[in-house]
């Protein structure tokens, strides 16, 4: 016997994944070329979400996508959101407003004035918070944020992002006891892009090879 609700969600998620991929293409948020990421790593593609603030209706739509993932994969009850600096904060605010979920945020660096603390907002001892960020690559910033929440007395079991760049983040987070939830995986985005014939075959092949080279495919997820 299969769970109907899970099946429905799997179908719905495929639609969300495609919708997101189309949004990324339409707003030119996926750049193909030679990039150096903040980590210093080279990458044949780059996800540029800097134009997002210019499109409030897209922010709204993306907030709905996060809400769907949270409701279907994490909890349909009240959950506290913890925004990861700095890109996670605007997105988490949009989600918090639309779903009426309480929000805290992890400070980028402990400030020198006012209260010295790692997070802003109300967090009770032992309370669970769901981390929210835009992207995950290897999981470094999510892990640092999880540490800040845990060191502040909170508990972290889930993280939600728009796109999993599939470069080890899923596994690294799992090791820290954190389940990663995403709206789409980068491999799926490029599959949609392939179908839509937006990139040349050569460009697409180069990216797929790069992604496969990172070895975090379906096997680890199964």
């Amino acid at each position: 016997m299969y769970n109907l609700q899970e099946r429905l969600w799997a179908e719905k998620k495929k639609i969300l994944s495609k919708e997101l991929a189309m949004l990324l293409i339409r707003l030119n948020m996926i750049k193909v070329g030679d990039f150096t990421l903040t980590s210093g790593k080279r990458s044949p593609y780059y996800i540029d979400l800097r134009v997002l603030p210019s499109y409030p209706s897209v922010m709204d739509k993306i907030a709905d996508m996060y809400i769907e993932v949270i409701r279907n994969e994490i909890s349909d009850k009240q959950v506290k959101l913890a925004a990861v600096p700095t890109a996670g904060l605007p997105l988490a605010t949009a989600v918090s407003l639309k779903a009426k979920l309480p929000l805290i945020y992890v400070r980028e660096t402990p400030k020198l004035h006012g209260h010295m603390k790692l997070i802003e907002g109300i967090l009770e001892q032992g309370e669970e918070a769901v981390l929210l960020d835009d992207l995950v690559t290897t999981g470094g910033s999510l892990l640092r944020a999880a540490e800040a929440v845990r060191n502040s007395g909170g508990c972290v079991k889930h993280a939600v992002v728009l796109i999993d760049r599939e470069e080890g983040g899923f596994g690294n987070l799992a090791q820290a006891g954190i389940a990663l939830h995403y709206i789409t995986k980068i491999m799926d985005v490029f599959e949609w892009i392939g179908e839509a014939s937006v990139l040349s075959k050569g460009e697409l092949k180069r990216i797929i090879e790069y992604l496969e080279g990172h070895g975090e495919g379906e096997l680890q997820r199964a």
């Binding site: 605010t93 918090s96 407003l97 009426k100 979920l101 309480p102 929000l103 802003e120």
Partner: peptide, 11 residues
Amino acid sequence: RTLPSYPEDFD
């Protein structure tokens, strides 16, 4: 900064 922790008030 604690305001968003109270979504109704924040709204």
